[in-house]
Amino acid sequence: MGEVTWRDVTVVWARPSDLQGFTETDVAAMGQGQFDRFRQLTGSRAQGFLAGRALIRELVRRIRHSDEVRLSSRCARCGADHGRPRSAGVSLSVSHAEGLVVVAATAGSILLGVDVERAAADTRLDGLRPMFPDGRAPDLAAWTRIESAVKADGRGFEIEPSDVLLQASDHDADPRVWSALLPGRLKPLDVTTLVGPPGYVLSVAVG
């Protein structure tokens, strides 16, 4: 497992195969909705879900100083348990890439998003170009900044990635911090690309 901290956000990552001790019994202890969601998954998706919940449990326990970790991931649109995970007193975000799961967490209630991509994901870049018809398709680092900002915003697929504007922050002296301007949001989000797991590109957004 790896870990990095930016501001008050802790980001951890692991390969699902390295977290074999976390089982469906542990998922059930986090809430019936979590167990039901897990039972709908198979193969690598089920393994990735278990790994993500194992990392969430570790971080929430650390932040709240409590062994009990209950989660809700109810979707505000349809009511199913496939939304972003939530736990009282903690802000969370999860991202999956081939062979890796990443979780970001911080105490309190803030806008928080994390995104990760394999650094060698050439086919991913090819798939991004049609989303940016004006020819300004991003590289992977910029794409993870866009995705983390969209996740932090919470509207997800309602926002076109090409409508997210990344520009140098006008309030942070660190050149690694960008401002992400999203349609319909007056205040920009702060986003940065971190040094994370080798072979992957990792970005975090907060607001």
Rank of each mutant, 00 (worst) to 15 (best):
L59H: 08
V60Q: 03
R61S: 15
R62D: 11
R62L: 10
I63K: 02
R64L: 05
R64G: 09
S66V: 11
S66R: 13
E68N: 10
V69F: 07
S72H: 14
S72N: 03
S72A: 08
R74P: 09
R74L: 09
R74T: 08
C75T: 07
A76N: 12
A76K: 11
A76E: 11
A76F: 11
R77K: 14
C78I: 08
C78N: 04
G79Y: 05
A80N: 08
D81Y: 04
D81F: 13
H82G: 07
H82W: 10
P85V: 11
R86L: 10
R86A: 15
R86Q: 04
S87P: 03
G89A: 06
G89I: 15
V90Q: 01
S91D: 01
S91M: 15
L92A: 00
S93P: 00
V94D: 00
V94G: 08
V94W: 02
A97I: 02
V102S: 07
V103D: 00
V103Q: 06
T106V: 05
A107D: 09
S109C: 15
L111Y: 11
L111P: 00
L111D: 10
D115Q: 03
D115H: 08
D115V: 08
V116E: 08
E117N: 15
R118D: 03
R118K: 12
A119D: 09
A120P: 09
